[in-house]
Amino acid sequence: MATRRGFIGSASGISTAALLGYSASPSAADSPLTDTASTTAVSVTQQQAKDSIFAVNAGMRSNYATLKAELVKHLSPVIVVQNDAKGGRFTLVTANGQESVNPVAETFELAKSIAHVPLGCFSVIASYLADKIPNLPNADRIDPHDLLLVAFNDDRSTAWIEPLQAYAATLTTARKNLPAAGLPAALTTSCGHILDAALEFINTSVQAKVFDMKSFEDFSGSVYPDIRVNMEHAAQAQIKGVQDIMKTWRAKVGEAAWADLYCVVLSQWTTSVLNQNTIIIKDCMNAAKVATHLIDLPGLETPKDPIFTALDNLARIVQDNIAAEMVFPKDTKVADALKGKEDLLSDEILIQLGGGGAATTQSAPTYNTLSEGMCPVRK
C-alpha cells in the first residue's frame, strides 16, 4: 500500500540501490574525494556527484526497510480489521500467532443485501439517464458535469431492459423465499416492502420502455423508511458481534497487554471517515491510547495480503513514533509531523505559499477521525 513517504519497503539494501539506479556504497574508484596515492582531488562528472548524493538516500531507505521488516515480527498485540460484506473480518495478532473470525451475525449481511436493492437498480439504468436534470427536490445537489459522466449511453436506447429484467428475476426469487429466511418480523416486513417496490418500478419501466430520474426517485424515496429499518438491524448485529469478539480477545491477552493494543482498520476511501467498525472498536480500547493506537488505513481496493499490509504500515508508524523524537529532539512540531499523517515538507510549503504553515500543524499526531471524543453522529 502506497503511503505518504513512498519508500520501497520490500527491497534489501543492495536491491533498493540497484532498483533506483545507483550504488548505496560507492566504490573507491567512484569516490569524488581523493586519490589514495597522491591525495590529489579526483575529477568526477556532475552526474557522478549527484549519484553519490542519491546513494545517501538509498542507504537510508535500505536501513529503514530493514528495521521495519524486523519490527513487524515483534508487533503484539494487534487487531487487524478487514471491512467486508459480512461486517468485518477480525484478526488477532500476538506473539503466539494469529486467529481470524467474522464475528457479526448474518442478519447484518441479509439486512444490507435488501437495503442495497435501489442501488442495484440504479447501477443498471444510470448510464441511460438523460443528461438534463429534471425538476427534482434535490436538483441543486446534482452536479451537471457528474451526471453527464455517469449518463454516458443514449437515453433513447432500450439496452437497459434485459439486464434490469435479469435483476428482477433475482429479486423475485428473494421475495418468494423471504418468509423462510427466519428474519425478525420487522425486518421481514421492511425487506418485503423494498422488494415489492423495486419489482413494481422495474415492471412499469419495462412495459413503458422508458424511465427517468423522477420515476426512479419516486421509487427510492418510497422505500427509504424501510431501508432505515434494515440499517437499524444491521447496526445492532454489528455492534453486538464486534463488542463480543473484543471482550473475548481482551480476556485472552490480559489487561496489561490490552492497554497497549493497536487496532488497524483497513477500509476503502469511501467509508474511511466514521468507519462503522472504528466507531465500535474505539470504546473497547484503552481510552488513553485510542488517539494513536486506533489506526484507519483507507485504500482503493482490498490489498492482496491484508494482514501484512496492516502490519507493514503499523511498523512504519511505530518506528516513526520513536524516530520522530530522536531525529528531531529540538523541534517537537516537526517531530509531530513525522509521527502523524503530515508530510515533513508540508509546513514549509504552506509558509512559502503564504498559508502560514505553523498554524496548520497539529500539536500531536492522531491516526483516525474519532480520537478527539465521542462519536460526532447524533440522532
Score class of each variant (00 low, 15 high):
V318T: 05
L129A: 10
A310T: 10
A291P: 01
K379D: 10
N368Q: 10
P329E: 15
S27L: 06
P77K: 02
T270Q: 13
D336N: 08
F54I: 14
A130V: 01
A180M: 12
S220K: 15
K339Y: 04
T189N: 07
A29Y: 11
F152E: 09
K214A: 11
D154A: 06
T271H: 03
S25R: 13
D305W: 01
F90L: 11
T40C: 06
I281N: 07
K330C: 09
F216W: 14
Q165I: 04
L353H: 08
A324E: 00
L261N: 07
S220V: 11
F7C: 02
P376L: 08
Q47R: 14
K339H: 03
D155K: 07
A256E: 14
A335N: 12
L314E: 08
I194R: 06
G354Y: 05
L67E: 14
H193T: 14
A358S: 14
T91S: 03
A85L: 05
T91N: 00
H293C: 00
S205V: 01
E372K: 11
R141S: 12
T66D: 13
A166F: 11
V223S: 08
Q165E: 15
T34K: 08
A358T: 13
N96F: 11
L187S: 04
T16L: 01
V334Q: 11
A24I: 13
S52Q: 15
Y367G: 06
L266M: 03
A180C: 03
A256C: 03
A169W: 06
L178F: 07
G357C: 05
L33S: 08
G356A: 02
D347R: 13
A37M: 04
A41V: 13
L171K: 03
L171R: 06
N177G: 04
P184F: 13
E217C: 09
V229R: 07
T271V: 05
L338R: 04
I53A: 06
A364Y: 07
I53N: 04
A69L: 12
S205Y: 04
N313S: 10
S76L: 15
G192K: 06
S15K: 08
G299M: 14
D131L: 00
V80R: 01
T270M: 11
A166D: 15
A234R: 14
K330I: 01
L129G: 04
S215L: 06
L294P: 02
G192R: 09
D218N: 14
N63G: 14
S31M: 04
S27Y: 02
M1C: 10
L136I: 09
L119C: 01
P306M: 03
D320R: 15
I281E: 10
K282S: 08
V56M: 09
K209M: 05
L178E: 07
V242G: 00
V72F: 06
A37Y: 01
V42D: 08
A323N: 11
N275Q: 08
K304P: 02
T332V: 13
T172W: 05
D244H: 12
N96E: 15
T366L: 02
A58L: 00
N321A: 00
A364H: 08
K289F: 03
S215T: 15
K86G: 12
L136G: 11
G241D: 14
K289P: 00
F211Y: 15
